[in-house]
Design a protein around this nucleic acid. Structure first.
Lengths: 167, 167
DNA sequence: CCAAATCGTTGGTCTGACTAACGGTAATTC
DNA sequence: GAATTACCGTTAGTCAGACCAACGATTTGG
């Protein structure tokens, strides 16, 4: 095999390569439907968790609040979501899915499913599930690295890490 | 579990999140040693496959030729690689590892191993190997999507091989 | 009422990966 | 052996994604 090199077995590198590939596939597939990853993320989140403020959407999707502004504007311009001032808290905008948005989400669901299938083509259903399981452990661990306990063996001060808010 | 949402089970999204996390961990760890991912990639490739031209390095590491210029310059400035004109083909530069480079690679090997361990902390050794196995299947498939023959099953027009955006 | 915090918004920054073009060199063809 | 074609390294610039800084409007809490 071609695993004589140190790079070929490096989990971090394989993750990066696979993720890049996934982004390509999904991005291209969604672009064919005139959409972006972010559009799907917002529509899906609204469908799954109901109306939300932009801050709430940002927390769930991981999309930065500043990028969310234009994104919601775009979706609202297409009539797929509504952005209305929250009467209970007038700082907030309540973003809500419309019927058109739900319809579009359904189409994008199909597109996404196709993309996933293309991505995972070389894996059997069982292997795909296993992959998802393993990845989910990693991302969940990322959210809660250490509940409590010893700081770190040989641990120096934390290297400034950019926190990511992944819900 | 928190898998009530469509995003939470999406392989492409999990890959992206995990990869981002990996980049953070590895990047921070390497930064603590004054290095970038690219430095390690180049040093490791040279150690594993011997001297190479910059084009060859680019092909193996995936680093773009234009970015490789400054990178090799940096490593050469630190005395960790030598860049000499190939007498057999004077278009080429032969990039070669020095003893200092080998020594630095050893240190970075340790750093990288620590980063991988931190990354994969929540997984048992068996699970880690399984993850690497699955990811490698994906990445290899990416390189050789279809051995030959039929254009693509269900495939529409060619997805632009490189850019995330068709342009 | 005043201070602090939150939300949406604007504008700018930084980085990684890419493109375009060019001079120098090699290989190929006539 | 001159011209054409292809390749290598280099420079400069583009582009998208993720982020930060700061602001006005608003709510919250002492």
């Amino acid at each position: 095999m071609a695993d004589d090199g140190r790079l070929d077995g490096l989990a971090s590198r394989l993750l990066g390569l696979a993720a890049r590939h996934a982004e390509q596939v999904v991005g291209a597939e969604l672009a064919g439907a005139g959409a972006h990853r972010w559009h799907y993320a917002v529509l899906a989140t609204l469908a799954d968790h109901g109306p939300a403020s932009q801050a709430g959407l940002g927390a769930r999707t991981g999309i930065h609040a500043s990028d969310l502004v234009g994104l919601i504007g775009e979706l609202a311009g297409r009539g797929e979501v509504t952005r209305t001032a929250d009467p209970a808290d007038r700082r907030r905008n309540v973003v809500e899915l419309t019927d058109a948005g739900r319809e579009r989400l359904h189409r994008l669901d199909a597109v996404l499913a196709g993309a996933q299938d293309e991505l995972l083509a070389p894996l059997s259903p069982g292997r795909r599930a296993e992959l998802v399981r393993l990845l989910r452990v990693l991302v969940e661990h990322h959210g809660h690295p250490e509940p409590q306990g010893h700081p770190e063996p040989g641990g120096r001060d934390r290297i400034s890490g950019r926190a990511s808010r992944t819900g």
